[in-house]
C-alpha cells in the first residue's frame, strides 16, 4: 500500500506523457464547428455583384451546396480559389460565397481577375452573418445538405487533397 504511493508519480507521468503524445501534431488553432448537423443559421445578405444574386438561409434548401467564406484581403483565399473554379467547371455542386468584411470594389476586382466560381454571393460587410455561422477565420468552407443542414466545415484553404479526400466523398454521399 505504502509502496504504491511511491509508484504514483511515475504512473501519473506515464499517463501525462501518453496523452501529450496523442495531442502532438494536432493544430490547436483549428476548432470544430458547433453547428455540425444543425440547420444553417438564419441570415440574409445582399448581392455583391450585378447579376449574381445575394444569399439567404432559404437559398440553401433543396440541393447540396458549398458555402465559402472569402475576402479579397485574405491571401489563403487565393490558394483555394482554383479549386472552386475547377469544381464549378465540373458542375457537380452549387457554390455560394459569403464575402467577409470586404470593400465591394476590391471584391469585384478580385473576382474579375481570378474568375467567379460562385452562383450566389452575399456581401457580409459587417461580418454579422459570419458570426451566425461561427466563423473565426477566413477562408472557411461549409458543406450543406438538401435539408439545409450544415454537415461539414473546413477551416483554412481547401487544397486539392482536402477536396478529394473529404469534401467530394461527402458530396457524393449527400447527393445520392
Amino acid at each position: 500500500m505504502r509502496r504504491l504511493l511511491y509508484i504514483l508519480p511515475v504512473v501519473l507521468l506515464g499517463l501525462v506523457a501518453v496523452l501529450a503524445y496523442l495531442r502532438l501534431g494536432k493544430d490547436p488553432s483549428i476548432l470544430p464547428s458547433a453547428l455540425i448537423d444543425r440547420p444553417a443559421p438564419e441570415f440574409a445578405l445582399p448581392p455583391l455583384l450585378d447579376g449574381v444574386p445575394g444569399l439567404a438561409t432559404a437559398d440553401l434548401k433543396g440541393q447540396v451546396a458549398l458555402v465559402n467564406v472569402f475576402a479579397s484581403w485574405c491571401a489563403p483565399c487565393r490558394v483555394e480559389h482554383p479549386v472552386f473554379l475547377r469544381l464549378k467547371e465540373e458542375g457537380r455542386v452549387a457554390i455560394y460565397g459569403i464575402n467577409y468584411k470586404d470593400k465591394p470594389e476590391d471584391a469585384t476586382a478580385w473576382l474579375q481577375r481570378l474568375g467567379n466560381p460562385y452562383t450566389r454571393i452575399g456581401a457580409d460587410r459587417e461580418g454579422r452573418a459570419a458570426i451566425e455561422w461561427g466563423v473565426y477565420g477566413v477562408p472557411e468552407t461549409f458543406v450543406i445538405d438538401r435539408e439545409g443542414r450544415i454537415r461539414y466545415r473546413h477551416v483554412g484553404p481547401v487544397q486539392p487533397r482536402d477536396l478529394d479526400e473529404k469534401i467530394l466523398p461527402l458530396l457524393r454521399e449527400l447527393q445520392k
Binding site: S29, I30, A71, W73, C74, A75, P76, V79, Y136, G137, V138, P139, V155, G156, P157
Partner: peptide, 8 residues
C-alpha cells in the same frame, strides 16, 4: 501562416 487568416 498562409493556411488561415485568423481574424486577429
Amino acid at each position: 501562416a498562409l493556411l488561415l487568416v485568423l481574424l486577429t
